[in-house]
Amino acid sequence: MSAFAIDMRDVSKRYPYFTLQGLSLRLEPGQIMGFVGPNGAGKSTTIRVLMGITAHDAGEVRVLGHPMPAEQARAKRDIGFVSHDMGLFANATIGWHMAFVRSIYPSWDASYAAALLKRFSLRAEQPVKGLSTGERMLAMLLLALSRRPRLLILDEPTAGLDPVARHVLLAELMDVLKDDSRSILFSSHNTLDVEQISDRITFIDRGRVVASEDKETYLDRWRRLHLDVPEGIRLEPRAGVTSITQGHRTAVVTTDAFTPALEATYRLAGFTVRDVQRLTLEEVFVETVLHTRTERGE
């Protein structure tokens, strides 16, 4: 049995106009993975493969030790899944949904559900069809969290939310994270959200994983160096440098393998290092995606 909450190995899924190729992903128990990619990168497809809703063409998928999609019913007993693309039964109330989910999951925590209802400013008697996007998302999160799942899979949960609803949702997730036995896969194209709560990040682009590492370690490797360049000198690409933007006598070098030695190398070569900046997750994400596309000749 796999010791990972999520263990995907070399998974492929082919569609007429999109292919998920050779995707490998591992999430350890208690880990929070930010799953980041541009629109259409394959995040939702990956998550549907994980949930057993979409069968993969090749590779191996295990969730909480269960092979997917064969044992999806057993695996889903311990998974809480919320997606921006998910709806509730329009003609029923939130309270009806709570009773419905409670009747299915013995692990349902009624007092926690009541606390979340209050915290999310929802009312049990509210019909689903009258809920705003944010309220609907919070209601779904309530239904997922109250069953106390071992694995929480969130597919773009903040999409379409106003800043207040987004803050409430993220605050609640931060609270959930205190339980370090629970694993979370958090998919988003919003790097600010991911940066707040994740301890591991995976970038996906055009159906392929382009990076998957510990967030702090990964961010720490990236730097942007602002250089003054002697006239007539042209900066050449080198290992670890992902991009170079050169002006008349200045240059900006971005690296994903920063060490003080790199800075020293430029100084020794006659360049003046005016500034060394850390990158935000968003900048790292964009740089990683564009660099990978260039390397692949896409």
Binding site: M51, I53, A73, R74, K76, R77, I79, F81, S83, D85, M86, G87, L88, F89, A90, I104, M140, A144
Partner: peptide
Amino acid sequence: TRSLLFALSLP
């Protein structure tokens, strides 16, 4: 209404 996805999230 995408409640199918909710139903399929159940075990």
